[in-house]
Nucleic acid binder design. Structure first.
Lengths: 198, 198
DNA sequence: CTCCTAAGTCATCAATTGATGTCATCGAAT
DNA sequence: ATTCGATGACATCAATTGATGACTTAGGAG
């Protein structure tokens, strides 16, 4: 699996050094991000991550401290580029729905439905989840005078996450295969309804 | 489920026989039903099941053939009392939402979001899922002239299952603690929206 | 009461998995 | 070229978990 045979020796800047801790770290982080999104934390083994990254799995412990801390690192990276997100914004919906058909929700969103063993991780992801999705939506509902803003926000997040998870799981065939824009129409109907009681 | 007592050695009375294969089988089945709903298949160990049932875990292999077949038995029992269910019916929603606060979806519904390792189990639960929930809803949509009936039905099931899962996971506090009837109002808004294209 | 089968208990196995330690090797600085 | 710290490969450990088989015992048949 050491297929990463990049330019042997280029100029001064070494983009393809055979030994590069930073690069190995990145490869592990990327592989873990994918696998955690596809299968979740429990069903992803460190050996799987190492194999997909093309890096020895033992380096997970060295560079991150362990599988759990690697998950936290993935979560932090995921949080980095996603600021507080309005779940009712169409662009945001499209971004969360994602382009890749066979991939579940990211670590933070996933935390809404699948609790984590380690309470530290659970609290951290929950905090992110509320900060980035639930609370903004709840405040928006409150601003608009929607009756039970907090509950409605949580229900909307749960429903949306369920759709993401189902799309990744493949159990619901048409949902898994649906074109993103086509799916977006239906999802918008659902989420708009959360904002419009009665 | 049957709320039978735990065997008491002191009573030599017939109803609490100390050795009763049928009873032990039932106890294991009930305990497994609870635990699978609470934690899902993977995170439930045979030892957990045995402990909650008050029965030696080794009997799982004897009476069911193994953990996987026990799951199938739970699924069959779950399918038994639930005929094809209209997800838009309020009583049905209430039944699926359940009374017990801290409990996730049953094995069949759960299969919509969490794929199973064993393809045999996956197919069986998927078949049940479609027969009992997706297809009836899809046909109803088609009957009512809703545009993309199949996709809308799958999205509705995914959203509803997400809510069930979130309620069981406890990550979304207000959703987990909400009164069933209160929650039902919000859920109805969502599901009705699936039937009414924007 | 005596037996004998079904029921239950227990020890243990094999596979998986996360983690750790050791050792070889690369590669940059001198 | 030499050296030495950083990097990675590999073997292995300990814990978990599903499963199996041998042994013990209850409890009804005769």
């Amino acid at each position: 699996m050491k297929a990463e045979r990049i330019p042997e020796k280029t100029t001064g800047a070494p983009p393809g050094r055979r030994r590069d801790a930073g690069r190995s770290r990145e490869l592990l982080l990327d592989a873990a991000t994918e696998l955690f999104a596809e299968r979740g934390f429990e069903r992803t083994t460190t050996r799987d991550i190492g194999e997909r990254a093309g890096v020895d799995a033992a380096l997970i412990a060295r560079y991150f401290g362990g599988k759990t801390q690697l998950y936290i690192a993935v979560m932090q990276a995921d949080s980095g580029d996603n600021a507080p997100a309005d779940l009712l914004d169409e662009d945001r919906q499209r971004a969360l729905l994602g382009r890749t058909p066979h991939r579940g929700p990211g670590p933070v969103v996933r935390a809404a439905l699948v609790p984590h063993d380690d309470p530290v991780v659970q609290d951290a992801s929950r905090e992110q989840l509320y900060a980035r999705l639930v609370t903004p939506l709840s405040e928006r509902f409150a601003r608009e005078g929607v009756p039970k803003p907090q509950l409605r926000a949580e229900v909307a997040v749960a429903a949306f996450t369920g759709i993401l998870l189902a799309r990744g799981s493949g159990a619901l065939t048409e949902l898994a295969a649906a074109d993103p824009d086509e799916l977006l129409d239906v999802v918008r109907d659902l989420l708009d309804a959360a904002a419009a009681p009665g």
